[in-house]
Design a protein around this nucleic acid. Structure first.
Lengths: 169, 169
DNA sequence: AACCACCGTTCCGTAAACGGAACGCCGTGG
DNA sequence: CCACGGCGTTCCGTTTACGGAACGGTGGTT
């Protein structure tokens, strides 16, 4: 599954397995085995690869505790970073919302807030009974202790960053 | 360096190397080598150990030093992601601001905007002549075509995400 | 003292992750 | 048509991370 993430990131960059192996200074056999999950890579190997992909190691490591990716009818989100401090835990996602049907998410714990900055497209999101709208460069924030919705306005896919803040209990 | 973190976490728990190795199901030689940095562990090994320590893998992984970073007197930022679409280019940073002296950044091109979500601490930032303040969970946004400043309020380090938006010219 | 339990390191044979080279496959072009 | 280059996979010899067993050191008990 970490192999799938590496492969996904690589294909997103439009670069071949051979080229990435060359750039990262690892054997093609190594990278092939890593992507296919038939090897158990060392940190050194994994770091060489992720560094060339321009992402932190954490971007490809599955977190059993927190939901690494959130899938839904319209929303696809991948974790960029998880951060914990004395007061709260933060999860930073890269989010895509497909045009068409929206998506409804159930309520989180009280105190949880969501913060969205829109990269491209127009997003309508927030509490299910009172969503707001933001275009590229815009920002939305809401308390997510009630059911909330996400939807792309128009027929363009929305790209955004989503920050989830879980206060310490 | 990752070995030092593992050792620190283990000693924090007041548990011996032998005991942790037994719990995690790895050899004492393996754990010893890992803590002393004389081995280059596989993911499997590292995960077995961190799981017994009760921390996520990310807790012991050093921040990727090879990632592009922007340094300043008080601000330290690393790129998480760069994204380009038809209208603009976005750069998403993880940012830390040290307490004490603030930092002044020169103006960017007209139309460039900055968006900050604070993770921890209290940040005062924005146009140099009219900065705003935000605490953990707060959000700031400003047009950065004028000189702008960043400063930590109080003596706690600020952690935040910074999104820079460069409209297409 | 001797004994014991446990500590962390080192030694060593085995298992496996490594890189390089070969392989088959597929578009391009002479 | 058949080279040719680049692709991803597989084969294979080398390197090295692995666990078990020894080792010396330390503190507690009799």
């Amino acid at each position: 599954m970490i192999g799938a993430r590496v492969r996904g990131l690589r294909e997103e960059k439009g670069i071949s397995l051979s080229a990435l192996a060359r750039l990262a200074g690892v054997g093609k056999a190594t990278l092939s085995g890593l992507e296919n999950g038939t090897r158990n890579p060392t940190l050194e190997t994994l770091y060489a690869v992720t560094a060339q992909l321009g992402v932190p190691l954490t971007a490809v490591l599955a977190e059993p505790a927190a939901a690494p990716t959130v899938h839904g009818a319209a929303v696809h989100a991948t974790v960029l970073e998880v951060f914990t401090d004395a007061d709260a835990t933060y999860e930073l996602y890269r989010m895509r919302v497909s045009p068409g049907t929206g998506q409804l998410s159930p309520a989180h714990q009280p105190g949880v807030t969501e913060h969205v900055t829109v990269f491209s497209g127009v997003l309508r999101a927030g509490p299910a009974d009172a969503p707001s709208t933001a275009a590229a460069g815009g920002y939305l924030r809401w308390d997510s202790d009630v059911p909330h919705s996400y939807a792309a306005v128009g027929d363009e896919e929305v790209t955004a960053s989503l920050l989830l803040r879980y206060p310490r209990r």
